[in-house]
Design a binder for these strands. Structure first.
Lengths: 216, 216
DNA sequence: GTCCATAATGAATGGTTATTCATTTTCTTG
DNA sequence: CAAGAAAATGAATAACCATTCATTATGGAC
């Protein structure tokens, strides 16, 4: 009763706090996707969450902090998915690359709402160092791991002309650019087509390890 | 005296009006790059231009209109440069592609201020159809022309595996992504490196028409 | 030089929005 | 159940900002 009573109380309390924070972050995501970063207000967010106006300041101190934690949330989610792939011992090198390509264009990562949030923050990044710091961090993870994977493939095949670091740069730039296209002109570019573009790229760099997409 | 006096007066007047508009657009560009789209105010813009507070409403009716015309200005500038290349009769197909690649990473196009402006608007694009319409328009121009150029190369060489439309998509996505990288982490990616990535890509797609970059 | 049309100014206005905090509600503990 | 702490509320506040418009400056025509 004595000692055991303390811990549940603390956990229950902090758990509920974390739940509220997540609830507000989710609401923020939704609002940014619908209205854009610049015209999302505290009233929008709290209404979307079904809570009262003062709640954000109670849990996040300020709007700016909430926005930062929202970006961090999306970045963390993406990063975790990738780390699961990178650390999966059952996958060989090319399977890992394929897994990342699938992941990068999976429903979890690229619904238009999440894309809108990414680009909303990227748009403000130059003016706000905190935003670019968060973005740069995940960029680094991808660059390091992909370079290592490509380097492995290079040793495994006949790929004298390949520069692994540059190929990794190209891959991330390619996916970022395709995401942008999916956001801006979804009528012109479908997810299926975007996948084909990535597959083309991988095949052109490592023809011994990736298949040529079915339709030319 | 009679008839000749009318014309100069009109031109002088309208020229001065256009000059004021351009002055304000330039100031807007500068402010967005420094402070971000969301925290650029009318006071910022007019101060930057060295003019009075009411001037924007006089020349552009509203802030929103000024922003739209600012985006249009940057988009037009980019588009004009490209059209000059596409219509240059002295260049053959691969020279045109090389010219575009040079142009896309020239000082005129990618100073960080202009990149910041592009991405600021892209960030708001989902929530504001007017923005995405302007962006989509230039996207289309590039897609059509590059596809045609790649198609030409395909006929000229031994490129059975190439899908010209997809290669064009890949090129634009690649450059968009590299621009983003240059904006977010300029410490990690230099313009020189970005150019190498693009050259690698062109070589990998059309090895008979582009040179392998010097350093692997 | 005078007049007048046009351009520019910036103080005042009104609408919007983040933040605060006194009050109320909810939940835990004994 | 009582009491008290923690969480939540939302009306009030204060800051900010786009827009307006009465007033002033400018420059060309005669």
């Amino acid at each position: 009763m004595h000692t055991s009573a303390i811990k549940p109380a603390i956990t229950a309390r902090s758990a509920s706090k974390q739940a509220r924070r997540n609830q507000l972050i989710k609401a923020t995501l939704h609002c940014i996707a619908r209205k854009g970063l610049s015209s999302t207000t505290m009233a929008d967010i709290t209404q979307q969450a079904g809570l009262s106006l003062g709640i954000v300041n109670l849990h996040f101190v300020s709007k700016e902090r909430l926005l930062i934690e929202t970006l961090q949330y999306v970045a963390d989610e993406y990063q975790q998915g990738l780390e699961t792939i990178y650390s999966d011992q059952t996958l060989n090198v090319s399977a890992k690359i394929r897994a990342q390509a699938n992941y990068d264009f999976s429903k979890k990562i690229i619904n238009r709402d999440k894309l809108a949030v990414w680009f909303a923050f990227w748009g403000e990044a130059k003016a706000r160092p905190t935003y670019s710091a968060i973005c740069a961090e995940y960029d680094d993870l991808v660059a390091r791991n992909l370079t290592a994977l490509f380097d492995n493939l290079k040793r495994a095949g006949d790929y004298d002309n390949i520069n692994p670091a540059r190929a990794a740069r190209a891959y991330t730039a390619l996916t970022d650019g395709l995401w942008l296209d999916l956001l801006i002109s979804p009528r012109k570019l479908s997810v299926t087509k975007a996948r084909e573009v990535v597959n083309d790229f991988l095949f052109s760099q490592f023809p011994q390890h990736f298949k040529l997409p079915t339709t030319i």
